[in-house]
Write a protein that binds this DNA or RNA. Structure first.
Length: 298
DNA sequence: AACCCGTGGGG
DNA sequence: TCCCCAAGGGT
């Protein structure tokens, strides 16, 4: 029996999390009634590895300028990269632009409701497809992001952190925990995520204020510290990523073509600088011109 | 599967 | 200060 692995009956977990969410949820603009599926999708792209606080202002400007996929698709990809600003991982801007184009071409300009069609869009992976289907269309999907994985690892698994990569066991557990009614499942999904974001945080969880304190397997086990392989921190200083960031910052600030010399000054190592620029070009983030100039893609 | 991809804030 | 990590996706 699958549910026998749960220390707490699922319906109890549901009511606890839903009650907590209804009282403590942040009122984020992409959660309002008037938020369109496109607005939800834009938020999900921006929230991939970028904190809510930094996303908020960019999201608002973005939707004011491009309220529909067609509006974004009608502009050069470089405008999306520019408007992305300093959210980080600018390939997401490129993919969001490509997703908008695909939505116009394949789906008549409307964000598709079907999970498989969402998953087929550029930049939409397992998490984002489930998130859009759940949050925008109130469907029943397991939404497994870093917050949910951490909550389940602790509350059910009894460990401090989940594995580095999502496992089949996690997917199975998340599917088992889904409430049957789609609307309830959708609220459960966002509720667990919110709990992970506000209470069951990675660094210093506020277990004293956690609604799941009494049923938490990690608490029962005495909050044992993380055991497995170290969660590798990603170095940044001196990497190609840093160089790419500096190069792209120059191109974002300038509206027309940029001379090669303006790019050369951002990084002393010529080899690495060239490699980073080549990478940006091959990624489609930068367009080389014939006369030694560069610009954001058109 | 492991690695690459930006940026900034909080503990 | 320094380090961790933040609603991941693609290869």
């Amino acid at each position: 029996m699958a549910t026998s692995t749960l220390p707490t009956p699922a319906p109890l977990l549901h009511s606890i999390v839903l009650d907590w969410y209804r009282e403590h949820a942040r009122d984020l603009p992409w959660r309002t009634e008037q938020a369109t599926p496109w607005a939800v999708m834009v938020s999900e792209f921006m929230l991939q590895q970028t904190p809510v606080k930094r996303v908020l202002p960019v999201w608002a400007l973005w939707l004011e300028r491009w309220p529909t996929p067609a509006a974004l698709a009608a502009e050069p990809a470089g405008e999306a990269v520019r408007a992305w600003g300093r959210l980080g991982y600018p390939r997401r801007a490129l993919r969001l632009h490509a997703a908008a184009s695909a939505i116009v071409e394949r789906h008549g300009g409307l964000v598709p409701e079907d999970h498989a069609q969402l998953l087929a869009l550029p930049g939409v992976g397992e998490y984002t497809a489930a998130a859009v289907a759940s949050f925008a269309f109130k469907q029943r999907h397991a939404v497994l992001d870093t917050n949910v994985r951490r909550v389940l690892a602790r509350a059910v698994g009894g460990v401090e952190y989940p594995a580095n990569a999502t496992t089949a066991a996690e997917r199975k557990l998340a599917a088992e925990l889904l409430p049957q009614a789609p609307e309830v499942a959708a609220e459960w999904a966002v509720g667990v995520m919110e709990l992970g974001a506000l209470v069951c945080t990675a660094r210093s969880p506020e277990c004293g204020g956690c609604p799941l304190f009494e049923q938490c397997a990690w608490q029962r086990a005495g909050c044992p510290p993380h055991q497995g392989p170290p969660r590798r921190g990603q170095t940044y200083e001196g990497t190609d990523r840093q160089v790419r960031g500096k190069l792209l910052a120059v191109l974002r600030a300038q509206h027309g073509p940029v001379r090669r010399g303006q790019l050369d000054v951002v990084w002393p190592d010529e080899i690495q600088r060239a490699r980073a620029l080549d990478g940006l070009v091959s990624d489609g983030l930068v367009e080389p011109l014939a006369d030694g100039h560069y610009q954001l893609p058109r």
